[in-house]
Simulated assay, not measured.
Amino acid sequence: MVADLSDLARSQRLVVKVGSSLLVEHGEARADWLKSLAQDLAQLRAKGTKVIVVSSGAIALGAARLGFEKGGRGSLSDAQASASVGQIALAGLWSQALGDVGLTAAQILLSLDDLEDRARYLNASATLGRLLDAGAVPVVNENDSVATEEIRFGDNDRLAARVAQAAGADAVLLLSDVDGLFTADPAAPDSELVGRIEGITPEVLAMASAASSSGLGSGGMVSKLQAAQIAERAGIALAIINGTHEAPIARALDTGVGTVFVPQRSDGARKAWLGGRLAPQGTLRVDAGCAQALQGGASLLAAGIVGISGAFRRGDLVSIVTVSGRKIAQGLAEYDSSECQAIIGKREGDQAAILGYAPRAAVIHRDHMVML
């Protein structure tokens, strides 16, 4: 179990996420820094840790080559074109840097649907496992050349957590431009670094700042906490360290400076996948009594639903929220949205006449639902 930074070096499988602002400066790769990071990864591999890299930087690299303003993020088409050019450059950088320390790089581009769809998720899992067993270092990035606002992760922090699930990793290491999670804005004089988090609570979420100081990336501390939530449901630890220094991993392991999120639960493989999914097709609003029953392990029944939004089909992922809008669970619907709308608030005995057939056991069965 990973409980502090020193444990990362004993992980069997580790996902390391690298952001754009660390890898790219003024449109060019930070070559010396990347070389030092590759040496860090080689040292981990020499000690028996299989490493996966989730790397940003394609859009920033491509935008510089194409001469696009705003780092390639002025429009969706600019971002897609920048990614198309930059992904070749990014793959070359990692291939060279890892090759120089005796490691073989493998490129994997993932879209949101690749990890939302169960069959494609299992295929990605098998590919990652085979590459790791063969001694390669998978370098993963979102396929931004075809991603749209509606079908994308939006940040590589959450992608890293999802990749860790698929790869069966012990831990995720996010390289940031700050030392870790602070109690307030890191620039505030009374702000303190939090070294260890035992479960993410509303108080922990309140510490996050959405700011990304470089302007290159799409993440921030909010996205890192969202990644930690995904990881902890699968029993995966997540750490944040300062990646701006050379040899950042070795430095963090030596100094112990960073934040480690210790998982408080370990869902089974399928429920962990379900809890990590990011694109619900609709929302079911439930009353207080129903919310309490769900917390106790019950299935979601139509009688406890007070509202529906979105258009979804049977088998689609839907969110479950309280009357105040707080998201408490998500799961796979047993009915489409129009059928749900017809039976909400109805007891089982009244549903058959409305539906024209015997009702199913639940709107969302507890076996196909995960609490958040």
Rank of each mutant, 00 (worst) to 15 (best):
M1F: 12
S6W: 01
A9P: 05
R10P: 00
R10A: 11
S11F: 06
R13T: 13
V18L: 15
V18P: 09
G19M: 10
V24L: 11
H26S: 14
H26R: 15
H26N: 15
D32F: 04
K35Y: 06
S36M: 02
S36P: 03
L37Q: 07
L37M: 13
A42E: 11
Q43T: 14
R45Y: 00
A46K: 14
K47W: 05
K50A: 15
V53E: 01
A60C: 13
L61Q: 08
A63P: 11
F68A: 05
G72C: 10
G74I: 07
Q80N: 07
Q80P: 07
A81E: 05
G86F: 11
I88G: 13
A89M: 15
L90R: 11
A91M: 15
W94V: 07
W94G: 07
A106C: 12
S111G: 14
L115M: 13
E116Q: 14
D117E: 13
D117V: 04
L128H: 03
L132A: 11
D133K: 15
V137Y: 05
P138F: 07
N141W: 11
N143T: 02
N143A: 13
D144L: 08
D144H: 08
E149S: 13
R152W: 00
N156R: 02
R158V: 14
R158W: 00
A160W: 02
V163M: 00
A164F: 01
A164E: 01
Q165E: 09
V172A: 02
S176I: 07
V178C: 04
A184W: 02
V194C: 03
V194L: 10
R196M: 06
I197V: 15
E198Y: 08
G199M: 00
V204Y: 08
S209E: 11
S209G: 15
A210H: 11
S212T: 13
S212R: 15
S214I: 06
S214M: 07
G215M: 11
S218H: 14
A227W: 05
E232D: 07
I241A: 03
H245D: 10
I249R: 01
A252K: 05
D254V: 05
T255W: 00
F261Q: 03
V262H: 01
P263H: 06
A269T: 12
L274R: 10
G275I: 10
R277S: 07
G282N: 10
G282D: 12
L284G: 05
R285K: 13
A288Y: 05
A288R: 12
G289I: 01
A291W: 02
Q295R: 14
G297S: 12
L301V: 12
L301M: 15
A303D: 10
G304K: 01
V306H: 01
F312M: 05
F312G: 04
R313P: 00
V318T: 03
G325D: 04
I328F: 03
L332H: 03
E334L: 11
S338K: 14
E339L: 10
E339S: 14
C340V: 10
Q341W: 00
A342W: 01
K346V: 07
R347V: 09
G349P: 05
D350V: 11
Q351A: 07
Q351Y: 04
Q351H: 06
A352N: 04
L355M: 06
L355Y: 05
Y357L: 09
P359M: 08
A361L: 14
H365Q: 13
V370D: 10
V370H: 11
